[in-house]
Structure formats: C-alpha cells, structure tokens
Write a protein that binds this DNA or RNA. Sequence first.
DNA 1: GGTTTGACCCTAA
DNA 2: ATTAGGGCCAAAC
Length: 109
Amino acid sequence: MPDLNFKERVVELVRFIPRGKVVSYGQIAACMGQPRAARQVGWALRATGGTDLPWWRVINNAGKISIKGNWENTPQIQRQLLEADGVKVSDNLEVEMAKYRYALKGLAD
DNA sequence: GGTTTGACCCTAA
DNA sequence: ATTAGGGCCAAAC
C-alpha cells in the first residue's frame, strides 16, 4: 500500500520481524521496492524513537550496529535488547547475520 | 523550489 | 583485510 508514508511502511515491515531474528536496512528497503533507500530506513527508525516497534532487530548489512550514540537509543541498549531476544552480540557490537538473518520474503506491502 | 543531512550500501584501490 | 569515495532517496530547513 503506497498510501502510507515511508516510515509507516518501514514500521509495519519491522513489526513482522520475529523474536530472535535480525534484518539489515537494505533488506527492508529492498522489500518495499526501493533497494537503494537503506538510509531512509534508518532515518525512519530514528523518527519512531522509542516505541513498541522492535527497531533493535534492524542492523546494517555487515551485521553490525550503526547508531551514532547521540539519540536516546544507544548501541549498548540495542545490544541489550538483542540479547534479550536470544541474539548473541559480540563486544564489538557485531551479530552473526548468517545465522539470525530473516528472509522477509513475501512481506512486501 | 533548492540545499543539507543521514541508525546505509556498493565498488575500487 | 581496511580505507575512500560516490550514490541513493526521504525528510527537514
């Protein structure tokens, strides 16, 4: 449904991510038909800022957390949330993408 | 309208 | 493996 705003679509998509799985920004962008709009996904998540949305399950393609740290949400918080979901995060804020990656296939709006 | 800014991604050296 | 540069597109100014 293209009627929704960009971040609305991102939110809906992120909401589908099951517990214990992670997705990259690029995958979300690609799933909504814009494989080059990865940055906007991050922007959208920033805008949501602190809701019931599982934003912590979204990381970059390298399987690493990319937050700057200036916002309410910090990489440490994200790591805590991920571990709470059962996802192991290294001290370097890296996640085993190959293992926890979620396909997102068929979830296009 | 244009200009700037990113919680990114890809390619090349 | 790591660094540098360009591109991408939505939102804010």
